[in-house]
Nucleic acid binder design. Structure first.
Lengths: 330, 330
DNA sequence: CTGAAAGCGCTAACAC
DNA sequence: GTGTTAGCGCTTTCAG
């Protein structure tokens, strides 16, 4: 592979001149520019980005740390982050944590190897202390319960959950279950809080037995949770799931029990994945503006990289409630 | 951030000794080792991988070039490639091409910047000439129609399509449509060939009007294609879709027309995404062994990187046909 | 076993 | 405008 030096020799100029041409810097005598460009073409020169970045003190990479690409919400988000990063000339390196605290710690630790300029991380189970050693710019996705001096972007989880449950209440549901409680996950706690607030506002009792836990927000867990809710002496007439995957699982289980949705059971999800929109019945869901999240995260990270001392920011991106067949008749 | 030199100074040894300790090389006098380890801990030293790789002449990165993370098949595959790469100490850099030839050319071109040691690419629309300039190790995913000296891993698309259609025939279907034909996509041509072969073997006529084209294998296109097939004077009693997303779209359209699946219409997909398994009705589909594909691709790439002159290999990974509700009752 | 020093490919002072 | 040169942080001969 041709290096800058090779090109310089071929063109009969110094590396500086070639570098100037390559980087569009300064003025270069037309004659020299022509010769350099010829040599560039002849050698098929491509800059070694690693060397460039070593010299510049940046890496040109950004890490995206997320639980799992197999979860549609995250793969959709990843696709959007990839695009947003392109605009800042960042390459994206994706790390999967599988949603475990250990996985997240390992991922954060590996960020210390100067491989990336910063990271966008979507934590599931991280605790406060885990961020302590972190010495590089980070933007966190999703509201988190712990209060840290970190840039953050997410939606109002409490408000969103409240709106979802209020929608169920207003369509006449009275025994509204929730699927997705989790002992450590910050967003789970917030969505649960919104759920309780909406129940309280409607004068409905909070029934512990209607809250199902889910360790991983996968379809199978949604189905399993729905099974156990349906086995209750007084089963629910509606269920609010903390993500679309759980909701799809719940819909599956409901169907297997011969229940009609939304007549016998109303179901709401969270994330607005395309899968939910095409499901039968199509899924009512909280729709965060994913593109806005991705853009804000990358922009925030960029600013933090450029000025490590700027005050920390929390960006709240908008959401809507997409009402579909799973809560309202055709 | 501490560098090797900082650590060396603190420990009172040379950088070489520190380097030896860090890399587990050679023998180091116990006394020195202890002091280095202390200094390492005290400074919180983390190697600069960029510098290391510059020196070593490798980058430690592998590029995964695919159409779009929003397509479940690719996001599932990406997750598996991420894991497989970990075993080879490779970081993965994902590039989306959006399935356009231009996007793919841009992606391939950007691979020339010494950023990656090699690439796993899943082409949709690339032509023969596009690979000509490629000077780095590449493994292609999926059978491709053009014959190039390139490592490849994929399933037997013709055979898989044949089996899918045979299954429809054997359940008594006679007017079997296909959704997913594409003028340039190699796999589309192969699946179409399998479809035709199965029809011929069953003594069924090939009816051009039953073959629907899809430029992007998204749900919306599957739905649109199904719409037009249902508008035919003699609509089909079965449809073989070239991926699960198209199939989900087709199921949606069929439901909107009041058709019962599988009674009035049988549907088969391709890819075995989890979404299909949870759909109502659950989707019969061709299930490639994605983990095997990911592992084989990364392993093949590793071998090619280590020995650029070895003969090119084509690995065929296994598949099965997952039979579910969309073709068989109950 | 360890130190000195070269150099991976590039950028950016600093001279001219 | 252009050439020379010193490093970015690391690995690795080559001496000792």
């Amino acid at each position: 592979m041709a290096t800058l030096k090779d090109v310089a020799e071929l063109a009969g100029v110094s590396v500086k001149t070639v570098s100037n041409v390559v980087n569009g810097h300064a003025f270069v005598k037309p004659e020299n520019r022509r010769r350099v460009e010829e040599a560039l073409a002849a050698t098929g020169y491509r800059p070694n980005l690693g060397a460039r970045n070593l010299r510049r003190g940046r890496t040109g990479f950004l890490a995206l740390v997320l639980p799992e690409l197999g979860i549609p919400y995250f793969s959709e988000l990843a696709g959007l982050v990839l695009r947003a990063a392109q605009a800042h000339e960042w390459n994206v390196l994706i790390e999967q944590t599988l949603g475990t605290r250990e996985g997240e710690r390992v991922a954060l630790a590996s960020l210390g190897t100067h491989l990336v300029d910063g990271a966008v991380v979507s934590p599931e189970a991280l605790l406060e202390g885990d961020f302590a050693e972190l010495s590089l710019p980070v933007v966190m996705l999703g509201e988190h319960t712990v209060d840290l001096p970190i840039d953050r972007v997410g939606i109002d989880n409490v408000g969103a959950a409240e709106e979802a449950v209020r929608h169920l209440v207003s369509s006449g549901r009275r025994r509204i279950a929730a699927i997705g409680a989790h002992p450590a996950r910050g967003t789970a706690a917030l969505r649960l809080r919104g759920y309780r607030a909406a129940l309280a506002a409607a004068g409905l009792p909070f029934d512990e037995s209607l809250v199902a836990t889910a360790m991983h927000y996968h379809r199978a867990e949604g189905a399993a949770a729905m099974e156990s809710l349906l086995a209750l002496p007084e089963p629910p007439d509606a269920v609010f799931c903390f993500n679309d995957l759980l909701a799809v699982g719940a819909l599956r289980a409901a169907a297997d029990h011969g229940l009609r949705v939304p007549e016998d059971l109303a179901v709401v999800g969270f994330d607005n994945t395309e899968e939910g929109a095409y499901h039968r019945p199509s899924l009512t869901t909280v729709a965060p503006d994913k593109a806005a999240i991705a853009d804000a995260a990358v922009t925030l990270l960029r600013r933090r990289v450029e000025d490590p001392d700027r005050p920390h920011e929390q960006v709240q991106t908008p959401f809507t409630l997409e009402i579909r067949e799973s809560t309202v008749r055709g």
